[in-house]
Computed example of a mutant assay.
Amino acid sequence: MSAGRAVGLLLGVAADAVIGDPRRGHPVAAFGKAAHTAERLLYRDSRPAGMVHTGLLVAGTASLGLVAERLSRRGPVSHAIVTGTVTWVVLGGASLAREGTAMAGCLDAGELEPARRRLCNLCGRDTTNLGLQGLARASVESVAENTSDAVVAPLVWAAVAGVPGLVTYRAVNTLDAMVGNRGPRYRDFGWSAARLDDVANFVPSRIAAVLTSLCAPVVGGSAGSAWRTWRRDAAAHPSPNAGQIEAAFAGALQIRLGGRTDYGHAVEQRPVLGEGRTADAGDVTRSVELSRVIGAVSGVLAATGAAFFGGRRKR
């Protein structure tokens, strides 16, 4: 079945690039509704309650993925179709590129108020007091982090574990976005979702940083600077994973990221990543281009990895 998985991954990456997200009935939206319903039933301001919430949702999603994987193994064609469809649904590369491009357009035109509203589609920051440079910096950081979370990481898990890996990772990452923040309501309840997401992204985030270094010259960036900045600055970031690719993007584009970051419920003084100038609208455009290249390379590598792992299992 390794050939079916490999072909399916390539089909899913292509579908995401050409079609984008499903416009109606998106399964991730359905999962979000189920998670909200479960939260209403299970919420307690405690870690054990959050662990039950996360465990039930992730285990249920993994079970559905296992069923889909087994049913699709009747032949390579059905396996490729199912894998391709799930990959298309799970990946977020096209929507990320669309939002990043729209942000760059607003900033280039000096339309700060529309840019502040649109940034909410990329991250959960308080945009009230952000100027052009603050909006550009937040956009590049969000494009970088989501390149790892929404593109590279699901493809890594797909190469290793197929459809179950894809849907389970997506469930974990979605739960982290929903309840994994550090606000008062979710500080304890969302702890398990946040920690599980850290584990799921630990290896993929570092792969994403390496790919950023390798792909940087394609968009006129610096591979050497990306590598050096990643190795030097990533560990200073409060997130064990987001800092990996944000540092690599800062070096690749030769700009500075980090600094004051306002989430509404809390303000963080992030360490500075990189040594270059402050970000501008052109850097947002280049970050989107870099994200697209990384996504394409990740798709090819994931398909190759799926064929490799599948071959080893057969032997």
Results as ranks from 00 to 15, higher is better:
Pro164Glu: 12
Leu64Tyr: 15
Trp230Phe: 04
Asn146Val: 06
Arg187Ile: 02
Leu175Asp: 09
Val288Ile: 01
Phe249Met: 13
Tyr263Arg: 05
Gly251Tyr: 02
Val82Tyr: 10
Arg277Leu: 05
Gly311Met: 05
Lys33Tyr: 13
Arg292Asp: 11
Ala248Tyr: 04
Ala161Cys: 13
Val172Phe: 04
Phe31Ser: 03
Ala161Pro: 02
Gly274Trp: 01
Leu273Lys: 06
Trp157Glu: 09
Ser287Trp: 01
Gly251Arg: 03
Asp149Thr: 07
Val18Cys: 09
Arg270Asn: 04
Arg5Met: 14
Ala248Met: 06
Val218Gln: 09
Thr174Glu: 07
Trp191Asp: 10
Thr304Ala: 10
Ala29Val: 15
Val28Pro: 02
Lys314Glu: 12
Trp230Asp: 01
Arg277Pro: 01
Met103Cys: 10
Asn129Lys: 14
Leu119Met: 10
Ala104Thr: 00
Thr285Phe: 03
Arg24Val: 13
Pro240Tyr: 05
Glu113Tyr: 08
Arg312Cys: 14
Ala307Gly: 12
Val140Trp: 02
Thr147Val: 03
Ala59Phe: 08
Val210Ser: 12
Ser291Asp: 10
Asp45Thr: 00
Ser239Asp: 08
Ser78Tyr: 14
Ala235Phe: 02
Ser287Ala: 15
Phe202Leu: 14
Arg73Trp: 04
Gly295Tyr: 08
Ser63Ala: 14
Gly220Trp: 02
Thr168Cys: 04
Pro114Gly: 07
Arg98His: 12
Ala250Cys: 01
Ala235Gly: 07
Gly299Tyr: 13
Thr85Leu: 09
Ala104Gln: 01
Glu289Asn: 15
Leu132Trp: 11
Ser63Ile: 15
